[in-house]
Design a protein around this nucleic acid. Structure first.
Lengths: 342, 342
DNA sequence: AGGTTATCTGCAATCGTTCTCAGTAATGAT
DNA sequence: ATCATTACTGAGAACGATTGCAGATAACCT
């Protein structure tokens, strides 16, 4: 076990601890060669704890995400990892969509990390008041809290993405366009719903097929089921995230409803395997890794420039990736007959 | 900003810092009520750094994985998160399949964490020698290093899984059974290859269709391409992990080769969307979340019982999930004609 | 009352660094 | 040779908690 301290190294070389410390911090000192050797021979490793205590910094940046098994967040983490650099590490907190765990984690983070990159669970007011007393640099990614403008953020152009998707369905001639939405308490939930409604309005269509759900596969499944049970079922669906798209597809598969012949579907967020699905999935894509790396770069900037750097807001673009899951609408009779026949 | 220390609290209450410290550690002290109040009023938060320095523990467990965007590892992390408990946190390190980053991370981890749960990149000898001098409890998950028996581990029954898969293909009448294997330098790579070969041997078949690749989608794609280019192409393929399965499917899709009519495929590791693929994917599944939680439980045990608890080894079972990607072999002529026609 | 134990307390050392301050040696300019 | 400048050095005080020790108080026996 390595309980060898800076003092041991100093004794070995015959200088003071201050010199060793300076050497470690990159200053030029007289006996560099001997110090290097002594450190290797003694297998000395500086104590992170002692450094933290003195310097006040930990060299750790936290990333708080609601669900690490969602490929989108996994990619964010990957992007952040790539941008974190050599002298910092990442502390991952997965809150599992639990508000309680999010709060607990945040309070425990204090003192252990230099900054927090987070995708908060909701935009509720509780968040900001907590953050203002937090004292650490915060960068929001993908989602913000109510007064998110006060902190740096890297967001997606959700409104545009949802409009693109809805317009695309409208362009195919659909009139009955459903949206399986995420929680309106979240940034992407709200904004994507806004984009959807704006596009419908522009085309003089109503939003009677709007369903609020919860960004999970089960939620997408349930929402799709309830849409299919309607007397006047939609001919196209826009699902607000990847997991809900998968859930919706499972619901369709279970009922033997074929895509895009009987119903068209377009999802927000691309998936590694979107092309492999039958049919290949048309989606609104964005660069999650880029979002992660931008968030980390912003964080590093704040860390280096001091807390009082003004917040910066970055917006990542979206684009429509056309594959094969959307087509022209079918006459509603046909859809109904199929629905009965399930 | 909270620069309020234990001394401030002590002054406020009119006792010594020792008393506050004891109160914080759960001992019964006289003025509990007043202390509680003072802590809240002053918004005092104990300094993690100072605690670390004195006590030597950090309350953080590291998880080192090669690729967090692989759903399998994401699930491991999720499982570990669920089992970590209230007084510890998880530090995630994503090495991105880079040996260099793995080494660097490991050395930086020292002193910042109480233990390391890891899926090492390879079984090379470098690992163990490093770990023996590491002095921290280590739990291997999914993969081990050469002298892995010295440390606790949670592994999968890889041999059995590979045998199940290969036997299944043999049972369908296949004779030309390929394996797109992971690196033989890794635990799952080697063991799954062993299982495949054992099953072939039992059936008096040769392993001329064995290809070693790298557990990535691109690797699976390339391997599948090279198999298809052979004069005598295989009629069935066993891919050694989820990403390579996706890659292989992409390769087949690009060439218009249909599954399972023209070629059968079975993969190791289930996928959230395996049912949605055309055709639904038959796989060898295992409970990744369970592996993660077991690893964490083992770690907590080591942490609580002291370093000198003997290592424990746990093996998670596998099972074959039959869907629709395997069928009877086609005559080789047909396959060849299709190959020419691509 | 006196003695013993149990419970709580404060003092002060300690953990392993960083960093200010003052001091010494070496170099260059005059 | 003198002085100014530069380049490095060591002593020692922090940083904010934990904890062994010994003393004080209260509680319990006989």
């Amino acid at each position: 076990m390595s309980t060898v301290t800076i003092t041991d190294v100093a004794k070995r070389v015959g200088v003071s601890v201050a010199t060793i410390s300076r050497y470690l911090s990159g200053f030029t000192v007289r006996n560099e060669e001997k110090i290097r050797e002594a450190i290797i021979e003694l297998n000395y490793r500086p104590s992170a704890a002692a450094r933290n205590l003195k310097s006040g910094r930990t060299g750790i940046v936290a990333i708080v995400v609601p669900d690490i098994t969602n490929p989108f967040f996994a990619s964010i983490v990957e992007g952040a990892e790539g941008a974190v650099g050599d002298d910092r590490m990442i502390l991952l907190v997965n809150t599992g969509d639990s508000r309680e765990r999010e709060e607990k984690a945040l309070s425990q983070l204090f003192g252990r990390v230099d900054g927090v990159i987070m995708a908060p669970l909701t935009e509720d007011e509780q968040g900001p008041s907590f953050f203002s007393q937090f004292g650490l640099p915060i960068v929001f990614v993908d989602r913000v809290t109510q007064d998110g403008e006060k902190f740096s953020s890297v967001l997606t152009d959700n409104v545009k993405g949802a409009q693109l998707a809805t317009d695309y369905l409208i362009g195919h001639g659909h009139k009955k366009i459903a949206m399986i939405s995420g929680p309106l308490s979240t940034t992407p939930g709200k904004r994507r719903a806004d984009g959807y409604r704006a596009a419908l309005k522009k085309a003089n269509l109503g939003d009677q097929y709007f369903i609020e759900s919860d960004f999970s596969e089960a939620g997408g499944y349930a929402a799709m089921c309830s849409l299919l049970e309607r007397d006047d079922a939609p001919t196209a669906v826009f699902t607000a995230n990847n997991l809900m798209t998968i859930g919706a597809l499972h619901a369709l598969g279970d009922r033997g409803i074929s895509v895009p012949e009987q119903i068209s579907i377009i999802g927000f967020d691309d998936l590694e395997f979107a092309e492999l699905i039958n049919p290949p999935l048309t989606v609104i894509a964005r660069d999650a890794r880029l979002q992660g790396s931008q968030a980390m770069e912003l964080m590093i900037k704040h860390l280096n420039d001091g807390v009082h750097t003004p917040p910066e807001h970055s917006m990542v673009d979206v684009q429509l990736v056309e594959r094969g899951s959307c087509g022209a609408p079918r006459e509603s009779q046909k859809v109904r007959s199929n629905k009965i026949g399930r």
